[in-house]
């Protein structure tokens, strides 16, 4: 395989993994805009999406039914998390609310371990394993599914914000809570919708990713961390920025993993690929604190 083909291969892998990071980041952005809270249970929704889909197909349901039902179940769990944490703590500090979502993530992770055990589960690929060829690079069809579903979801979310009343209310809420409340927007309902929507997005990501990488009860935290990084690198509160940030992280990770052994001697090896992606992300943030697409922050002191 030539270097260009390798490059294509790594790029596609990177974009498809990064797309899921981006989807989680988008969920972070939606909840952050509505509440100012970083929802640390976000990654658990990805895990639950994948786990539910495996369970429902295991019951003999066709894939599409299982997927829809999984999204519905995870959305309901998202709403429940909001009801049991954010809603029960009016007037609590942001820090307290964040820790409450961490508590919720423990419950979800533990629940998944009880239901599905510690083993990784897998879903059959949506459309076989025959790789698609771009030059000599072979691309698993599931990767295409991942990218396609993420693209459609991101466009869907943008349309929702632009053209529906609930979406507009959420944007108003993000711009100015008090003003939004003054013009009669129900803040509580907006916050509920934001949790439901983020959970649904994360679940979709989990469902399409499971056939490509398998899913385990303990994997939620990884998605939370990388999704959070994606959201901040893109500019916290900026949905499209989060998706761009996620894809950037995924691509960096894949490229570092693929090329590092060629470029350097044994001093640094591919085990560091994630560390390199993180370091670059932090460097971006250091140079551009508002994130790739974020608004400019005010400086203090």
């Amino acid at each position: 395989m030539s270097l260009t083909d390798q490059l294509v291969q790594y790029l596609v892998t990177g974009v498809s993994v990064g797309a899921v990071y981006g989807l989680v980041g988008l969920g972070f952005a939606i909840i952050f805009n509505a509440t100012g809270v970083i929802n640390f249970a976000q990654g658990e929704f990805v895990m639950l999406g994948g786990m539910c889909a495996v369970a429902f197909t295991g019951l003999g349901m066709p894939l599409i039914t299982a997927a829809l039902l999984s999204v519905a179940v995870v959305t309901a769990i998202g709403l429940l998390v909001e009801r049991l944490t954010i809603r029960t703590l009016p007037g609590a500090s942001i820090m307290t609310l964040i820790i409450a979502t961490i508590g919720a993530s423990f419950v979800l992770k533990g629940g998944a371990k009880l239901l599905w055990g510690p083993e990784a589960v897998i879903l059959p690929a949506f459309s076989g394993h025959q790789p698609l060829h771009i030059g000599a690079a072979g691309i698993a069809p599931q990767r295409v599914w991942v990218m396609g579903v993420v693209l459609v979801s991101v466009i869907g979310v943008q349309l929702f914000f632009k053209y529906t009343l609930a979406g507009k209310a959420m944007q108003a809420c993000a711009i100015n809570r008090s003003a939004a409340q003054l013009v009669g927007i129900n803040i509580n309902r907006t916050v509920s919708v934001s949790f439901g929507l983020s959970a649904a997005l994360a679940a979709l990501g989990g469902i399409v990713l499971t056939p490509a990488t398998m899913m385990r009860y303990s994997q939620g935290a990884t998605f939370t961390l990388t999704g959070f990084l994606a959201a901040v690198v893109g500019g916290l509160g900026n949905g499209i920025g989060a998706v761009v940030g996620g894809i950037m992280l995924g691509v960096l990770e894949a490229l570092a993993g693929g090329f590092i052994d060629i470029l350097t001697s044994s001093l640094i090896h591919s085990g560091y690929s994630k560390a390199i992606a993180l370091a670059v992300a932090l460097l971006v943030l250091w140079l551009r604190p508002q994130g790739l697409l974020g608004r400019r922050e005010r400086e203090a002191g």
């Binding site: 990084l229 901040v232 560390a275 932090l282 203090a300």
Partner: peptide, 28 residues
């Protein structure tokens, strides 16, 4: 030094990144 001059969750972000990188270095 660079992060505490800014409002928001930047310290959280940078310490999170540091934590993940440190964990990788401890292992690798």
């Amino acid at each position: 030094t660079p992060t505490l001059r800014l409002h928001g969750h930047y310290l959280a972000m940078f310490t999170l990144g540091l934590g993940m990188i440190a964990q990788i270095v401890f292992n690798q």
